[in-house]
Computed example of a mutant assay.
Amino acid sequence: MSPRRTDPRTRSTLVDIAAGLLAGEGPQALSARRVAAEAGSSTMAVYTNFGGMSGLVREMVHEGFARLEAYFSQVAATGDPVADMALLGRAYRRNALTNPHLYAVMFGGANPAGFSLNAEDRQYGRYTLGTVVECATRCIEAGRFDSGDAELVAHQLWTAVHGLVTLELGEYLIEPCNAGVVFEAQLIGLMVGAGDDVESAVRSVRSSRTRLATELGDPDPDE
């Protein structure tokens, strides 16, 4: 007998529901019965698609990073690598705002206690950082960033943007220093900190903002 085929739309729905339950109600809300009920399906859907709840929890992490990679993949490499880098930062933030529940699971903001996540699961999405490392390399080669370790630069940029996004999702950034205001200033500061001159950094960051809708297909969250 051939294995039962799974519907990718059902998988995505179950993942989103489980992530929402985990973020909103905690790990006690995670059960095959509850997830299936929220999806309007039977518990068999959880077992058919993921082999059980532990598989569903792992899939939340994998799916979260897959969606981040999908955003990153839309950022084209251009003759202005600093603008490309700023747009990667915007893509990171946009993914988090679009998928806040998955974002919380990806980085431990929602702890799936009782379900096993190993180190490999936690580090699953680190390959997405390769896109940022490649862009940092181009920034260095173009003389826009100081010579140095592109991977270290990528990590510094990642941790900085991640920190802002985490505060934004927690609704800590309010007027007059709301997330949009802080984020624009942060992008410029990060590029200058990496070695770019202020005038060029401002120009590139502004350019990245105009590319947001055309390349990522999303409106600017700050407009």
Rank of each mutant, 00 (worst) to 15 (best):
I140Y: 02
L212E: 09
V15S: 06
Y47R: 12
A154N: 02
D16I: 08
M60V: 00
L169S: 01
R34Q: 09
A19R: 00
G130I: 11
V57T: 01
D222S: 12
G130D: 12
M191V: 11
E151P: 12
Q186K: 13
G143N: 01
A194M: 08
T210M: 13
Y71M: 09
A76V: 09
A113Q: 13
A185E: 09
G24M: 02
P221I: 03
V161Q: 09
A37C: 11
L157I: 06
H62N: 12
V205F: 06
A36D: 00
L68K: 14
F115I: 01
H162D: 14
F50P: 05
M85F: 14
R5M: 10
R209I: 13
G24H: 01
N49D: 06
G125Q: 02
G180C: 06
A23L: 04
V182T: 05
A77N: 14
E25V: 13
G189Y: 07
V133R: 06
V153E: 08
E215V: 07
A29H: 05
A194P: 05
T10N: 13
G108C: 01
R58A: 10
L87G: 06
G193A: 03
T78P: 05
T214G: 08
A23M: 07
R9F: 15
D84S: 06
N95L: 07
A23R: 05
L14H: 03
L14R: 01
A201G: 07
L164H: 11
G51F: 08
Q186F: 07
F107C: 08
A23Q: 05
Y71H: 09
L167I: 12
D7M: 04
C139V: 03
Q74W: 11
N118S: 15
S116N: 15
A76G: 09
M85L: 13
R5C: 10
R34H: 12
W158T: 08
H101R: 12
G180Q: 03
G79W: 06
G143M: 00
R58K: 09
P112W: 00
S54D: 14
P219W: 12
